[in-house]
Design a protein around this nucleic acid. Structure first.
Lengths: 339, 339
DNA sequence: CTGTTAGCGCATTCAA
DNA sequence: TTGAATGCGCTAACAG
């Protein structure tokens, strides 16, 4: 507990511990790293000295010296408040923590500039690897990081313009399955609510929607497709507009949980019965008092899979730098709520 | 783009840039930090060289050299999947990012050992400060960090056994207000569902509940109090048990959103009408089809306030190290849903 | 088993 | 305006 080192400032260093224990810095270093080649008596003295000074090894200096990275994994997401991303984060952390790595989470708030800065900063801080859910199709910053030797794994979006490992959800198949189910129930006018066009998952889910319609011989109607809603309130407005059309849809398919929740509120205010389906499961979906078909998948697993890809790549060391890129797809399933 | 440095390994360093630009490392350093005292011509040469090599300053070396910290703020939470914590995290980040600081989020999964390791690791990595929501009453690791000169701010729990800035929610007042409202509606047997006793917020909210009962002259009944539920499923079971009592409660008060959601499911399966109130607002609370009184507060603001306290303490520099600890309280309000 | 030498990549200090 | 020397805190590589 005693802070006393001739008035020097800042936290105690290895030398301080060494002096106090009357050994060289090297020996102190060995003790504190549990190197066995130290006499038990010396070891105890060093340990005591460290404890008395409240010594904490400086991890910054340590990584600089060792040169093999910092033991940190950077995770870049657009919106931590969305349970999808927080689950993903926990999945990543659960895997990498098992390999002695810490997760640094960066939130971009959908801002591309911020995303670029964040990635650059992670590289500058010498993280061992980066897992990212890029906000847009512009991925030059990630490509640069990868080119600079930092392993990059993409989650929920494929790499654009460079190669990297990635974990995807079966966006196309999941959306198609959900829309097929609406079609099987006799719906022919099915609306689509989705994220901005630049978002990969949204595009794929729209493709799945279109494919299901085509297979069923239903002509697509662009008036029934509304893209660009990010928050439930926007989705509620968009859904209300669709429901107010002369040729209004009898069912809605939403490309993510924000849109599904928004659409739910619009339907709730509406007189006619509208069927609802959407991508992403969410808490309390079962108690909305409305039949609801959701495309569910394990978002923790998405994170774990991404973590595994990264850890594998790190583990394979120098020689594994240019192993072929791997792509994992997380399956989806349909869940029926509400009855 | 060209990687070419006589076969040296690893990313390019300042010296590499300097050599390529035919200047000293010092000059290169100045250019890359936008030091104005460099001839424009030289500056351009250095910039070009850096770009060609794909140079990224090594932030690890930089912080070691400067000695004034890493520009990182450590945030320690128990469960990122809980919206409360992800909001808190965003609030913190929004404030500290404005001061050039990055947030490192660590998730403890309610594990005290993991929390201790995490804090130690953050200290070892020389973060500039730590914001924590400790899982239990045991805070020696935080006290040690604070004693070691790392500013610590607690969120949602007060420091135990040491002094530190903190941001609290008005747990006592919020709970009392909610229970008062149930009492005003004529309820006399009111059950309580809460987190494990070690959690500070749970204890305070229980105190608020008890105080409201006492004021109203209602005798407290320990049989109506169930502590220890962390997940909705556990809360559902606990609520069902209360509702099955001979002298069953006519209303339930829950000390957090996990318990409220769990209790909701139990009440939904129950025949009699049970009034429900709880601490924490949550998404879709308005559509549960049940009258619901919630204690709401701004959890982003909780994070922002914590960020502000930390930034203030950092800003005041050396001399502010032992400024008196500050305590901020975030107010609560009652929200009525369902009708 | 212990110590000495050297240097990771960068920026502060001083001198030119 | 530029550069040379020096050291942040720590640890490989080599002595002893």
């Amino acid at each position: 507990m005693g802070e006393s080192r001739g008035g020097r400032s800042g936290p105690p260093t290895l030398r301080d511990v060494a002096e106090r224990a009357e050994v060289s810095a090297m020996t102190a270093s060995r003790v504190l790293r549990d190197d066995p080649r130290v006499l038990p008596a010396t070891r105890d003295r060093v340990r005591a000295a460290a404890a008395e000074l409240g010594y904490r090894p400086n991890e910054v200096a340590r990584s600089l010296r060792r040169g093999r990275g910092t033991g940190l994994v950077g995770l870049v997401v657009t919106n931590l408040a969305n349970p999808f991303y927080s689950r993903l984060a926990l999945g990543v952390d659960s895997v990498v923590a098992g390999h002695g790595l810490k997760t640094v989470i960066g939130n971009t708030a959908q801002d591309l500039d911020r995303e670029r800065e964040l990635v650059d900063d992670l590289v500058a801080r010498r993280v061992d690897g980066i897992i990212a859910v890029p906000a847009g199709a512009e991925q030059r910053h990630l490509a640069a990081a990868a080119a600079g030797g930092v392993p990059v794994v993409l989650a929920s979006r494929p790499p654009e313009g460079f190669t990297a490992d990635c974990v995807l959800v079966d966006d196309f198949g999941g959306a198609r399955a959900a829309v097929r189910r609406l079609l099987a129930r006799g719906h022919r006018r099915i609306g689509f609510l989705g994220s901005p066009p630049a978002v990969h998952t949204g595009t794929q889910r729209l493709r799945g929607y279109a494919a299901a319609l085509r297979e069923a011989g239903v002509e697509a109607d662009d008036d029934l497709v509304r893209l660009g809603q990010t928050e439930p309130a926007e989705a509620t407005r968009a859904a209300a507009e669709l429901l107010a059309l002369d040729a209004a849809p009898t069912a809605l398919f939403c490309s993510n949980n924000r849109n599904t929740i928004g659409a739910f509120r619009a339907i709730r205010e509406h007189t006619a019965t509208i069927a609802l389906a959407g991508f992403d499961d969410f808490e309390l979906a079962d108690v909305l008092g409305l039949p609801l078909t959701l495309v569910a998948y394990d978002s923790d697993e998405l994170g774990r899979a991404a973590g595994r890809l990264l850890v594998d790549r790190l583990g394979s060391g120098q020689e594994g730098q240019d192993a072929p890129a791997r792509r994992t797809v997380v399956p989806t399933s349909l869940v029926e709520y509400g009855s």
